[in-house]
Design a protein around this nucleic acid. Structure first.
Lengths: 133, 133
DNA sequence: TTTATAGTTTAGAATCATTCTAATAATCTA
DNA sequence: TAGATTATTAGAATGATTCTAAACTATAAA
């Protein structure tokens, strides 16, 4: 049984052609930053039949299962990340690409009191890049 | 001449009814976090005739002129902020509200090398809050 | 191995924030 | 005040994402 299939079964997801193709792509590289549209293009290039709705369904499902991390960059798009560690990103808008920044490279020294009844959930840090000139 | 009108003239913006109402609202409080929809509601409550397109046009214009700062919170909405200092935010999704975090309360110790030809542009930090229980 | 069921995929419609369009209105300048 | 310029507007367009409900596929039970 393929590694992708095992991962799917372990997570109670039926190993369909589309899911296996997605998992294959995600596992192929160590760290992947991907959007639904980019993944769609990639799969079409590999001649895999899949609809955009299925790409979204599955990426969201994998995020729910904790296999991917989901986040947004500015208003643009929903991104999915195979790096599950707490970490942040550079965003190169010209190339539409993300670069990881390790959690331990940013120190949050202190911050205002959190409103009562609330606790910190996720922290989103994006350093937007622009061209030098 | 009203203070709002002066600000508009100084920025080469014709002091229309709609613009004066927007500037009045923004100046009224020291720090305002606002979205187009929230501002629209506020103005309607004050019986000011304004279309959503005009709200967007003007908020974007004020951001271009440096009178407001424009940024996004997750994928949700475009926000405008009268606090022009470098700073970050808590986001309370339940109340759909932002709370400022001073720039000097977060230290960015170091980070991976920036790709050649690029420099840092803006930095976006959002600490998402959730309910304690 | 068939069958029933539960889970998946799909095309296309719906949604929602934002921007665009191009017609009308207001403001300004001479 | 006329003519030029700039603003406002309603409604259409856009684009990413989600929804819908019909068609399909995998699975477990017989």
């Amino acid at each position: 049984m393929s590694n992708s299939k095992k991962i799917l079964l372990k997570n109670n997801l039926r190993p369909t052609t589309q899911r296996i193709a997605i998992i294959n792509y995600i596992l192929q590289k160590h760290k992947v930053h991907i959007t639904a549209a980019k993944l769609m293009t990639h799969l079409k290039n590999k001649n895999i039949n899949i609809s955009l709705a299925t790409v979204y369904n599955n990426l969201n499902e994998l995020a729910d299962k904790g296999i991917l991390k989901k986040f947004f960059v500015n208003n643009d798009k929903m991104w999915f990340d195979t790096n599950l560690q707490d970490h942040y990103h550079f965003y190169d808008s010209e190339r539409d690409e993300l670069i990881d920044i390790d959690k331990n490279e940013i120190a949050i020294s202190k911050h205002p009191e959190i409103p009562s009844g609330k606790i910190k959930d996720s922290i989103n840090i994006i350093i937007n890049l622009k061209n030098k000139d």
